[in-house]
Amino acid sequence: MRQLTAFMRKEWLESVRTGKVTILLLLFIGFGILNPAIAKLTPRLLTLMSESLSETGLSVSAVKVDALTSWAQFYKNAPLGLIVFLLVFSGTLTNEYLKGTLINLVTKGLRRWKIIASKGIVLAAFWTAGYWLCYVVTYGYNAYFWDNGAAAHLFFSAFCFYALGIWLISLILAMSAFFGSGSGVMLGVGGSFLIVYLLGLLPRIAEYLPAYLLNASNLTTGNGQPADYAAAIAVTSVWIVLNVVLAVLRFNRKLL
């Protein structure tokens, strides 16, 4: 346990001192504010543009915005946040291979599975904190300006995207155990996601795939039921566990 907490503390210190935590805070708080701000500004922008639009024959009638507009923004921006998050942390293991920093610690007796475990826990904690911070900020502004009651199954739909993030983090770990470079890991993670996404185009299996969780934002507008996503969540959970197990097994044989 001491090895695990010591290595996790090192991960935390690294993220603070190399500015990663600052980037994440700015990113997620920024998006959290941006979501309602865009919703709030949309009518004004359209009014400002209405004159030039009417010259082209388009007429702008009164635009109605509410919490749903802001939540729609949330689901537009969340993937962007996730991509930046993955880019920032994709080198979490490969940077250590590159510099050879793990050798000292492994030769001091650090169990290899604890490296994977610490990295996984810290990354998941950062994603949890960042993503839900963004959610809370958006939720707060929405409650102030409008009424969150307009959106259905808010927490559950947000949870679905959160789970997708955890799945991608577990993919980073698994890919890092196979590849030696950061670009290899990004290609592996990106490629895996693309394959899963394309497989999702087949109606028969779509609802069993992690990529299906992207559709959970439809729940907020009253389309579908949480139960529709049960299969995808179950498959994603099992897949996360498999990724971590695979990462540990492969990393045990990895040349450092």
């Binding site: 290595f7 190399t18 050879g100 001091k108």
Partner: peptide, 24 residues
């Protein structure tokens, strides 16, 4: 090792503290 690599963001004291914990 011939060119030992450390975590550049740590001080020597912090690094040895980490090593001490890892060596139990």
């Amino acid at each position: 090792s011939d060119v030992p690599e450390f975590y550049g963001f740590m001080t020597p004291g912090e690094y040895l503290e980490l090593c001490g914990k890892i060596a139990r």
